[in-house]
Design a binder for these strands. Structure first.
Length: 159
DNA sequence: GCCAACGTTGGC
DNA sequence: GCCAACGTTGGC
């Protein structure tokens, strides 16, 4: 039985891990997520084969820069147990890991950045409830509908 | 660098 | 279980 393909948006700071980094390594364990809502999306929502909009945050022009594919279901994030890691969580126990990750595989880099600014200009098409374009949104993983996915990628090609 | 938004922590 | 203080995210 195959679940219908779902779509997600995943943020990354390009100084830390960019779309070019993903293009180089091809598959990356998406470690460091320390937010329960984002974790739950990985744990309860993601399936192998789901589509990912790769988003650059905290940069000159924040926006969608590429696509990727979910390459594993969720499993424990090893960095939570590493005292030397920035992502170390001393309260997490191996018998009951608090934080999970999924593997993300490179798909392609967009021909240009579809900027946050542009997405905001199309709020009517994306829907007011689309969390990315709402003020104060800090969630690093968000669900995207099939219609949003299609529309955002259509913006890649200028008219 | 500033600051609004908002999730988390901890005292009560 | 409330909520103030604190820390982090992320756009600008």
């Amino acid at each position: 039985m195959t679940a219908r393909r779902r779509y997600w948006l995943m943020k990354s700071e390009p100084d830390t891990f960019s779309i070019d980094d993903l293009a180089r390594v091809r598959v990356e364990p998406w470690n460091g997520v320390r937010n329960y809502q984002a974790r739950n999306f990985m744990r309860d929502g993601m399936q192998v084969g789901d589509g990912v909009l790769f988003y650059h945050s905290s940069t000159d022009v924040p926006g969608v820069v590429g696509t990727a594919t979910i390459a594993s279901t969720a499993y424990p994030d090893p960095t939570q147990f590493d005292p030397k890691s920035d992502y170390h969580d001393p309260k997490s126990r191996r018998e009951e890991p608090r934080w999970l990750l999924v593997d993300v595989a490179f798909d392609r880099k967009l021909k240009r950045t579809v900027s946050l600014d542009e997405l905001k200009q199309h709020a009517d098409r994306l829907g007011e409830e689309f969390a990315l374009i709402r003020r104060g949104n800090r969630l690093s993983i968000l669900p995207v509908t099939a219609a949003q996915w299609k529309f955002i990628l259509s913006l890649e090609n200028p008219k």
